[in-house]
């Protein structure tokens, strides 16, 4: 009997829909990795801007890094893809729209039907990665800004004494030396970012959360597979556990990385 049960559950958990669910983890993983990479890029840019000599650039850097603390990330997450899509459609409309087609168009947006751009899943996914990058780039910028200032003064003075220019000091000393100080902060931003990857379904990506909702909803038609009640709680609980495990693994990995990066450095009391 137990063997039959196991076989039944194995068959259920490996049916076509479930395999699609497992396959949709690629969206989450890609969003985390690409989003993280972009966040690092935006973060470096933001930190360099904040440390700039020019007040205007410094201002831009400061606004960029503090805006995310006054405004929730979900708002940016929805806004950036929409704004990008609309800008692209607007530019496209200036090329293809004629006064006749604009007059013929019933909808408020886009200006004419030729300029309509329906985004595919992959395009939405890419835009989602970019918005993750922008939002968590601001967090990263703050971490890196702090880390660059904790690089020992002596090293920077030594570089200056060698006759390096400001840019050279920045590129060769500050950005190379700051990683050790930035690691704990970066680990925190990474943990925030993985949690934010659960929001992909808001951008119409059929990600793990969307699939969990689909698979768990009650099914009353035998031809659509196993007849069952509302099992969504079990699927969402599985995701809950999945994210806890990912957090745990990330924490461990960052601990290892930190030990590796700190080798040879004086132990801080």
């Amino acid at each position: 009997m137990v063997g039959e049960d196991i076989a039944f559950w194995l068959a259920y958990l490996t049916n076509g829909k479930h395999l699609q669910w497992y396959a949709s983890f690629r969206f989450t993983i890609l969003a985390a990795l690409l989003g993280g990479l972009l966040a690092l890029g935006f973060g470096l840019l933001g930190a360099v801007l904040r440390a700039s000599r020019f007040a205007v650039l410094r201002g831009i850097g400061n606004v960029y890094t503090s805006m995310v603390r006054g405004i929730p990330d979900v708002l940016f997450f929805l806004f950036f893809p929409l704004a990008f899509e609309q800008t692209a459609e607007w530019i496209w409309a200036m090329q293809v729209c004629t006064p006749e087609t604009i007059a013929a168009s019933q909808a408020l947006w886009p200006p004419c039907r030729e300029a309509n751009w329906l985004l595919s899943t992959n395009q939405y996914l890419f835009l989602a990665c970019v918005s993750l990058g922008i939002v968590y780039g601001a967090f990263t910028a703050n971490v890196i800004h702090g880390a660059m200032r904790s690089v020992p003064k002596g090293q920077i003075e030594a570089a200056r004494a060698y006759g390096m220019s400001n840019l050279q000091v920045m590129l060769r000393i500050q950005i190379r030396q700051m990683w050790v100080y930035a690691l704990p902060g970066l680990s925190n931003v990474w943990l925030l970012l993985i949690k934010a990857t659960s929001l992909l379904s808001l951008l119409q990506v059929a990600d793990i959360v969307w699939w969990a909702g689909q698979l768990g909803s009650p099914n009353y038609f035998p031809q659509a597979g196993l007849v069952h009640g509302d099992w969504r709680w079990a699927y969402f609980f599985a995701l809950f556990v999945f994210y806890i495990i990912v957090t745990f693994i990330s924490e461990r990995a960052f601990q290892r990385l930190n030990v590796w990066a700190r080798r040879g450095m004086p132990v801080e009391g």
Partner: peptide
């Protein structure tokens, strides 16, 4: 360690 978004879905379901 888990996203609030999932927690909402979990508790609601």
């Amino acid at each position: 360690g888990s996203p609030l978004f999932i927690q909402f879905f979990m508790f609601y379901s």
